[in-house]
Write a protein that binds this DNA or RNA. Sequence first.
DNA 1: CACTTCGGCGCG
DNA 2: AAAGCGCGCCGAAGTG
Length: 308
Amino acid sequence: MKILSPEEYIHLTSKQSLQQEGSLIRIENPITGRIHTSYQQAVTSTGRLSSTEPNLQNIPIKTAEGRRIREAFVPEKGNVLISADYSQIELRIMAHLSKDKNLTHAFNNNLDIHSATAAEVFGVSLDEVTQDQRRSAKAINFGLMYGMSAFGLTRQLDIPRAEAQKYLDTYFERYTGVKEYMENIKAKAKEDMYVETIMGRRLYLNEINAANGLRRQAAERAAINAPLQGSAADIIKKAMIDINKFLNKEMPEVKMIMQVHDELIFETPKQSSEEVLQLVKKMMEEAVKLDIPLIAEAAIGENWNEAH
DNA sequence: CACTTCGGCGCG
DNA sequence: AAAGCGCGCCGAAGTG
C-alpha cells in the first residue's frame, strides 16, 4: 500500500478529481481501501446532516437497478451490515407536536398509518381500505408535512381539483389537532419570525410576513415542515451520540459507518450481529421520550441492499 | 481552463 | 405566475 503525501491525498479526494473520475470505485481511499463520505454538520436549514464527496445519502434504492447498486456496498470479510431506520418518524413527531387524538391513537396502537388515514378520509373500515385509497392517503400524509395545497394534491394524484379539496377537508375534519397545529405554527412563526424543533433548534423565517405572496407562502411551508424534519434530525443525532458512547465503551469492534437522515448503518462482526441489532434498535427507540412510541426497524445483511 | 448557473434527478 | 420540505451531483451552456 502506498502512503500518500498530503498533497497527493488532497488531490485524489478533491471535488475536482471526484468529478473527473465520476465513479465510486475509483475514489476508494488508497490507505483504507474504503469509500469515505464527508458529513457536513452546519449546512442544512433544518439541522439535518448533508453528505458530500461522495454523497452517500442519495444512493439509488427505488428501482431494481438501484437495489443492484446497493449490493455493491459491502463490509469487510467476516463482517455484516446492519441498517436501522426510524419508522414514520416525521409523522410521529407531528402526532407528538399536534397532540392530535386520532393520529396519536394510530401510533399508540401501531396501526399502518397510511391505511388508518385512508380509513378516515374515505370513510371505510381498516380492512376495507384498497391499495389505491392507501396510496392516496400516503400522498396526503406526506403532502401535509410539506404544506401541500389542494392544487399539489391534484397534480400528485391526477384527480380533479374539487376531489383533492374534498380529501383535504375531510382529513382536517378527522384530524382537527393537525389542522390546529398547522394554523398555530404559522401564527407563531409570523409573531416570532422563527420556528423551532423539540430540542430548540431554530429556523429563522425572514419572509414569513413578506408582502410577496409567493415568498410568504414558501416561508409558511417551511414553517410547517422544519419542526418535523428538524426534530427528526435532533432525535437521530441524540441516538448517534448515545450509541457511539455505548459502542466505544462496550463493543469497540462495532462501527457506526453511515447516516441517511432516518437510518443508521453499522458494520459488525457476524457472530454478535443479532445482539448488536437489538441494542442499537433499542437505543434509537429510546433516544427521546415522546407522547407516542418511536419504532426503529433493523435488519442484517451481507450488503446494503440486504440489510435495508 | 476554472468557475457559475440551470434543469434534471437521485435520496429521506 | 406559482401553487411540496430538505439536500448534492451531473451535463450543458455561458462567463472571464
